[in-house]
Write a protein that binds this DNA or RNA. Sequence first.
DNA 1: TTGAATATTACCCAATTGGCTAATAAATAA
DNA 2: TTATTTATTAGCCAATTGGGTAATATTCAA
Lengths: 233, 233
Amino acid sequence: MGQQVLDKNLKNKEVRVIIIEDYKLTRVGLRYALNEIENINVVAEAQNAEIGLELIKKEKPDVVLMDLGLPGINGLEATAQVKNISPDTKIIILTSHDREEEVIASLGSGASGYCLKDIDPITLSGVIKNVAKGACWIDSNVAHLALKVFPKPENTEIMSVSHSSEAKTRLTERENEVLKLLVQGKSNTQIAQELIVSVHTAKAHVCSILQKLCVDDRVQAAVKAIKEGIVSV
Amino acid sequence: MGQQVLDKNLKNKEVRVIIIEDYKLTRVGLRYALNEIENINVVAEAQNAEIGLELIKKEKPDVVLMDLGLPGINGLEATAQVKNISPDTKIIILTSHDREEEVIASLGSGASGYCLKDIDPITLSGVIKNVAKGACWIDSNVAHLALKVFPKPENTEIMSVSHSSEAKTRLTERENEVLKLLVQGKSNTQIAQELIVSVHTAKAHVCSILQKLCVDDRVQAAVKAIKEGIVSV
DNA sequence: TTGAATATTACCCAATTGGCTAATAAATAA
DNA sequence: TTATTTATTAGCCAATTGGGTAATATTCAA
């Protein structure tokens, strides 16, 4: 019950990080550097994607620092997999590759951040904390490559005042929690168990979500939530 | 050639900022807050784009903080213009609008950063410094909207032979039809009506879809269908 | 021709869902 | 202080869902 209150007050919630990097020296050095930073906790590290994905499945970290050039499964494929096994985990690519295709492909595969390895640890720690909250960060040396992807708008008129994300702001925090679980295919019973409330409560939340999103059932709610980006997939 | 070297050595280079924002209170408050920060210097401010663009032409600032909802020339147009009159100047959109079109259009018009107005000044100052160096930053509340733009890479090399195409090809044509309707939130009854078959038939199709996709209910089926691109949304 | 896959229909049954009203407590806003 | 919002719980009820088994017709490849 005090859970939300705790989360609200804990602005400085600890960010749990897993590092996937094949070079031991880089990997270990990075861990030591990051563990020096307040509110960042490197909970595990792996020298390849296979081991890393197992760890992610267990730990469900907030952030994964992912190298691109890994033996076996490469960082790109691993990034896509992380999104499957732990949708809420954010991925930051940490590499020395600055080719356009790799930057675009990384972000397309689900990464929220792209850092080159000459980044200083202080900046990196800031990036980790912010990406954990949902932000997007792209290193100064490759940002222009990524920004090219965004199409130039034809009419800079600013498309009137139609509110597509109007529904989003109407949902309460609790309802957003429920919606996220709903999208994961959880039943009312499962949602109730996860949030440690009665089934009636879960049901009530789902009902108000349906009304607020103006849909008839939970399938439509899930689809709409994905379409509008209310929950990440 | 010496550019990078210079930038690297001048870690504490002052960042020159211009603020374009119509509300005086916000504008002035922002200036005071930012001038408190080391290495950030607000060199000018304007309450509309016309004045702002003149100032930018004179001052050639490192960063412009741009409001979207401006009287006269709006922030989107202004952003594009800034890139014409001062190509090296970076633009950070500072707005309360969180609509997808505006986020995409802003980045497409040349902005390197997108912040919502409830950002705290400390974070904003960090964003300003990093965007000045060339980085890209998108606020945690809208980052997912921007990241959607990046296309999923087809060939992440190596494996990926797995799930997506496999599951898709396993579905029969009829099942794909049903799945599409299911994603639209149709009930078995509605699906049956649409396909002009009995409810039993629709139900049978849904059942085999669930089995083939290895999911427990239609919500998960819908989510998986969208995630794997089996149906387009 | 014959077997395999697909599409169709049907019935039974336990579980879940969504709509409805309604009460309580806590926090927030006016 | 009072009103509103939010989170929680509860019960009732009609409808839907998903699992199971099973039969029939069609098409297509071996």
